[in-house]
Amino acid sequence: MLDTLLIILTVIMLTVTLAPLLPSNHWLCRVWEFPRVQIAIINVCILVASFFLTSSTTQIMLVAINGFASLYQFFWIFPYTPFCPIQVPKSSAANHEHAIKIMTSNVLMTNHSAEKLISLVRLHQPDVLVTLETDTWWQDALSPLHIDYPYRVNRPLDNLYGIHLYSKYKLEDVDVLDLIEDNVPSIHCYLRLKDETKVKCHFLHPAPPSPTENQSSKPRDKELLLIAKKVREKTEPTIVTGDLNDVAWSPTTRAFRRISGLKDPRIGRGMFNTFHADYFFMRWPLDHIFHSEHFVLGTIKRMPSIDSDHFPLLSELIYIKK
């Protein structure tokens, strides 16, 4: 009985491990890039249980398959473990003229706990707040923040892709664009820091591959790689942040970092899993921040729940004047 159960579990785990390797962008294949940590843990559990089998042939087969699958999954998630060297150095002396503190929050449109987000913002005082899935209800509910954030960009939508930007820094050359899909907007602008340094910012929220939204990952992948190519053409200080609906270790996000040349402050520090806020055993990093070599890290933290399915992410980047 144990032999049969472990064989069935091994076949299932091997299938979901190999599915992302298929030449398909369908969500049924791409969705298994997300829970690599969870799949690896199950593989390790099966491997350990295999040592209790009486059949040596079955035992050897299961140990080999699950050992390989565990190592393969660890290969993908390795950069987001403490075993990997840190990519972005940390600065202990924050220069407030050169610092940008950004809070990114996918609020969950149907969630109406606006006061929790407002409290977090007032406590941590980010220079920039990016809200995703914000409709007109959220736009009105967050109006108490206007006094502290005089520069704002609003694109309320009731399709889960509304986006709002609140900034203490002056915004210039603002574009709100539907890059790939209609009514899936992103915000592109310059922030002018206190010392007049201009920082190019891209705030994104592409649609995910899923049975309820896009059957294929192509629109999301196209948007991320389009931004990567735009960034590659410039040498200016740059920040890209938002809910990318992709995990940090996926082939698409890896390609985004490689093409754009941007750095990820989480590498060597941890995963900073922001989704799903309600299920601790099913979490992965969907909310991201990437930046050019012009910055070092002040801090990066996952914030407490605001009753959304995402935790907010707070990051402070410090511009290194050259």
Rank of each mutant, 00 (worst) to 15 (best):
G67K: 07
H112F: 08
D3W: 00
E172T: 14
Y151W: 11
Q125N: 12
P126Y: 03
W76M: 02
S186A: 14
L225P: 02
I102Y: 05
Y166T: 07
H146L: 08
L145K: 09
N95H: 12
Q215G: 12
F52C: 12
E115R: 10
S50K: 01
R258Q: 14
P156R: 00
E97P: 04
W249H: 06
P20I: 09
T54D: 14
F290T: 00
M103P: 01
S91Q: 13
I163Y: 00
D140K: 13
D158Q: 15
T238D: 09
K218R: 13
L171A: 05
T212C: 05
S167F: 04
I39A: 09
V44N: 04
K200E: 12
T10S: 11
T197V: 12
I118P: 02
E236Y: 08
S56C: 05
L5N: 08
D264R: 07
S113L: 07
F311S: 01
G268N: 06
P265F: 07
G261C: 03
F52L: 14
I300W: 04
F311L: 06
I86L: 12
E213T: 13
Y279K: 10
F34R: 08
V48T: 10
E133V: 07
M61K: 10
H205W: 08
W27A: 03
C201G: 08
S113W: 05
H202N: 13
Q73W: 02
P79Y: 08
C45R: 00
I65N: 01
K168N: 09
S305P: 01
K230Y: 10
D182C: 09
S143L: 10
A114Y: 15
D140V: 11
R152G: 00
L14W: 13
P82V: 06
H288N: 06
D3V: 04
H276C: 13
R266E: 04
N106I: 03
C29V: 11
L5V: 15
V240I: 15
A69F: 05
D158N: 14
M103F: 06
E316L: 11
W137I: 09
S292Y: 05
R152Y: 02
Q125R: 15
S210N: 13
S308V: 06
R257E: 14
K170S: 11
I318G: 01
D264Q: 08
A93V: 12
I147C: 11
P82N: 02
Q139L: 07
H291N: 12
S70C: 14
P35E: 01
H112A: 13
L120M: 11
M282Q: 04
D158F: 11
